[in-house]
Design a protein around this nucleic acid. Structure first.
Lengths: 187, 187
DNA sequence: TGTACATCAGTGAACGCGCGTTCACTGATGTAC
DNA sequence: TGTACATCAGTGAACGCGCGTTCACTGATGTAC
């Protein structure tokens, strides 16, 4: 049956949000049209009223997703808070609402150019936001290279910690990286 | 038709090798039984003579795969060679024959305990091999924590570089991490 | 060493299933009067 | 403001397809004599 325009618009947003969460939780390949519809309280058919195909929905869901992490960094009080949150158990255990770079980095390498372009734009924004926040306390020339290395370390640590079947080793990885990044100038 | 025992054993090894390469190239979900059979010069039915199910084949293919990178590190002349090879364009562009931690780290987080256990064992071996090689030149107490941070940075860098739709940014990430890791004591 | 035959690695058709997509239908919405 | 009806967001059955798995069959292998 027909629904109000406001409800229809809300359904569209719900589909995009559900897709973003399910992709981060399960990866791009393991999420079906029916899964996304069900998570939004709709049937699979409804989806084709909003998007022309599964690929179109994926592109729309991904658009901006990779830039979301940069926004979180821009709104953070200081770089230490970013590091602690990123390496927290909450983040490691809840990929669906966490950083899409670590949740979908591996999957994105196998996607088409449009998805990978969005990833690149998101990464660029994140580097800038991270460098700005990290050099807030002190003047720093190689802030960009520092930010890139720190982000690579954070993403790698979370990928390893999530993949690790051994909780002790997983926690050791997070702790070692946390100690390193919170004292950047230590020899 | 029946084939000799030697050929049958070679077929089994071919299936495992093809699975390992295809998984690293496409991820676990995007590889079918027929793909693995075809890559080994067999039909899909042949596979069930060697393995009881797709999952059994995957477990056998993964077994030891995550430990392979540690062997490569143990056989390397020095840690600089490891870093350069890991961050090379050849490695970034050929995940099928490269490090499974960066190629399958994201996918492994969504797998069962058996696959994640193998990942953890492989990571543990890699940390030990890396720490041993890295501290060869100089005596070093926090070698293990250093190794963990370096590995996380390497894995993160390759995941980001592969996902990145922008080659300039991708190369910048690799160069920044290379410069950092090759001068570990720089302030 | 040759021959006869049981073994079994591999083939390919067939199965049930879930996928992405289509479309006739439903009925609440929202507009024209 | 009330009523009549055209619109269209969402439903769910149906489709063709590729998946993992099974199994009757094939024919080279390798053993018993």
């Amino acid at each position: 049956m027909k629904v109000s325009k406001a409800r229809a618009a809300a359904h569209r947003e719900a589909l995009l949000a559900a897709a973003g969460t399910l992709y981060r939780e399960r990866g791009f390949d393991a999420v079906s049209i029916a899964d996304i519809g069900a998570a939004s309280g709709l049937t699979h058919g409804a989806l084709y009223g909003h998007f022309s195909s599964k690929e179109a929905l994926q592109l729309a869901a991904v658009d901006g997703l990779f830039g979301w992490t940069a926004e979180q960094v821009r709104n953070a009080p200081d770089i230490g808070a970013v590091i602690d949150l990123y390496l927290s158990a909450t983040h490691v255990e809840n990929p669906g609402v966490g950083c899409p770079l670590s949740a979908l980095g591996g999957d994105t390498a196998r996607q088409g150019q449009a998805v990978r372009d969005d990833f690149a734009h998101g990464l660029e924004s994140l580097i800038e936001a991270y460098a700005t926040l990290a050099s807030a306390g002190r003047g720093s020339a190689p802030a960009r290279a520092d930010a890139i290395c720190s982000i690579a370390t954070l993403v790698g640590a979370v990928v390893l910690a999530r993949a690790c079947g051994n909780k002790v080793l997983s926690d050791e990885v997070l702790a070692a990286v946390r100690a390193r990044l919170r004292i950047p100038a230590a020899a």
